[in-house]
């Protein structure tokens, strides 16, 4: 009997406590509301409630927009550092894709005698290397952007998404330098310019969309698994061989073609070849797959990133 009594009294005490607590909370909220209402007379530029967030939250574009200067300044920092720190500077950025394409041209064009759809193999490989480098470098840099920016993350608040996005954007400068060098190759090989070139901005956009989307996953993952960054180069390399960078997608056997074209980079690289070298038909289906995959990867990546970013400062 006594235990039952004790239970009851225990229950009431707990209830009473809860009620008092709720009352205090309500008063508090009322006070806060008053404060917000008064905002009309006295300006309150900002009100935030800081608490543990639960569930999924979307991209807050408005907040990202308010930090747009930081995007730009961080991207410029990355560019400046890259061009200052390397002894060869711009030369390196020009040489790298040319050397890579040269190796591809020798191994796949001269030795393996793979078809290059009637273009010089060097040009053909270059047209694939250019968008691929943009993609691979974004993954590489954006993937490590959080870990290398850990000092900032643990000391300042800003939307964490800025870090991977701005480092992807900084790779765009390398890409532009690459475009200049390919136009020199165009002159040497006397390749005629076509209206197809106008498609490049659209292709670059989708290319970046996929790259940034994948970077969201990679960077979030690399915060929690510090050794993931070592696995990344292998992943990127495997992905490269699954994309028509060094070879033409026409050599892929028909029975594999459906699976092959699920790789969103296939559409992008083929699109670049069409735009730069003017060969073949533009495949709306491949481009559609790339765009759809890009949107999905980006949106899901942003969601996952936003979900795990809450713990970054504690883990990093």
């Amino acid at each position: 009997m006594s235990s039952a009594l004790r239970n009851i009294s225990h229950l009431t005490a707990a209830r009473l406590r809860d009620r008092i607590h709720t009352q205090i909370q309500n008063e508090k909220i009322l006070h806060v509301k008053k404060k917000i209402d008064k905002g009309s007379s006295k300006k309150i530029s900002w009100h935030v409630r800081i608490q543990r967030s639960r569930g999924w939250s979307g991209l807050s574009l408005r907040e990202l927009w308010s930090f747009r200067d930081l995007f730009w300044i961080l991207a410029m920092r990355d560019v400046k550092l890259r061009y200052k720190q390397t002894a060869l500077g711009v030369t390196w950025v020009i040489l790298q894709p040319i050397l890579t394409s040269g190796i591809f041209a020798v191994i796949f064009g001269v030795l393996a005698k793979l078809p290059s759809d009637d273009s010089p193999y060097l040009l053909f490989a270059f047209a694939g290397t250019l968008p691929w480098t943009l993609f691979a470098q974004s993954l590489q840099r954006a993937g490590s952007s959080l870990v290398s920016g850990r000092e900032m993350i643990s000391k300042v608040y800003f939307p964490r998404l800025i870090l991977p996005i701005s480092s992807s954007i900084s790779v765009l400068v390398d890409f532009l330098v690459g475009l200049v060098s390919i136009s020199v190759l165009f002159l040497i090989y006397k390749v005629p310019l076509t209206w197809n070139l106008l498609a490049i901005p659209g292709l670059v956009f989708v290319n970046l969309l996929i790259a940034i989307g994948v970077s969201f996953w990679i960077s979030a993952f690399s915060v929690h698994y510090r050794d993931f960054i070592y696995a990344l180069p292998f992943l990127i390399q495997a992905w490269m061989y699954a994309s028509p960078v060094a070879y033409a997608s026409s050599i892929v056997p028909d029975q594999w073609m459906a699976l092959y074209s699920l790789n969103p980079m296939v559409g992008i690289i083929e699109g670049f070849r069409w735009a730069l070298l003017g060969q073949g038909e533009f495949s709306w289906i491949s481009f559609g797959i790339s765009l759809a995959a890009g949107l999905v990867v980006f949106a899901l990546g942003a969601l996952v990133f936003r979900r795990v970013e809450r713990g970054f400062a504690d883990v990093i």
Binding site: W46, V48, Q51, I153, D314
Partner: peptide, 12 residues
């Protein structure tokens, strides 16, 4: 920079 585990804060 980091979230509280319990409780909240209002900032004006």
């Amino acid at each position: 920079i980091t979230e509280p585990t319990h409780g909240f804060a209002d900032i004006f």
